[in-house]
Amino acid sequence: MKTSTTARIGLRTVALGYLVLLIAVPIVLILWRTFGEGVGAFVDSIRTPAAISALNLSLLIVAIVVPLNVVFGVGTALALVRGRFRGRGLVQAVVDLPFAVSPIVVGVSLILLWGVDGWFGGLERLGIKVIFGLPGMVIATLFVTLPFVVREVEPVLHEIGTEQEQAASTLGASTWQTFWRITLPAIRWGLTYGVVLTIARALGEFGAVIMVSSGFPGVSQTLTLLVHSRYIDDHNTYGAYAAATLLMGLAVLTLLGMTALDRKRSKT
């Protein structure tokens, strides 16, 4: 197809303008506001006890959620690809549910289940605080990040098939040895992408977490909750910008990590 030069340039301008307006301008604005008052002010703002605690809590949640998602995500993907059981279609749908359900609904339903009056409310009376405690935030984050590892690993498992595993078994490898030496290395890239997406989503989760967190600064605020409370409750707009920049910085690091791995992958 032949397109005239003006039409081509026009199309590019529209596409670029769209990206700039929707993504670049807001990000640049925040960066500009954050560093407009100097790097020192930014560093001070993210070194308050509340900010450090929020960063630590966000990273702690990531550190708990990622291994759980890896183990159960790979297990679920294996069951979905290799298993021949009834209700596979149902499991497929359930895995996609977190994509469809609004995080705030997740938060509400978790309170219904784990809250004092919920089915598992008995735990609260035993002194295990799920809602308004760390376990609640972890469960909420697990819920919203559940599909990523499964959905990234599943197509890779389909693609590699079972022949390599069968070959390993004829060469004397046990099921466990085959998993560690053949299956896991073969799915490592899919798993890596799943982990990166999980980290990014876990860091950025807000709706589900705000419902189940007690939201005390320095105790139970994640970075996203810190941005929110600084802006809404404290009217500390600069502090909110600084915390947002920190959050964005973590996301960029995650993306950079993914790009670096991608480079390494295309070399082998």
């Binding site: 022949e163 069968q166 078994s169 004829t170 004397g172």
Partner: peptide
């Protein structure tokens, strides 16, 4: 298969 003392070669190499 691990204990049958066999070697197996697949059509698509595996």
């Amino acid at each position: 298969p691990q204990k049958r003392g066999i070697g197996f070669v697949f059509q698509h190499y595996a």
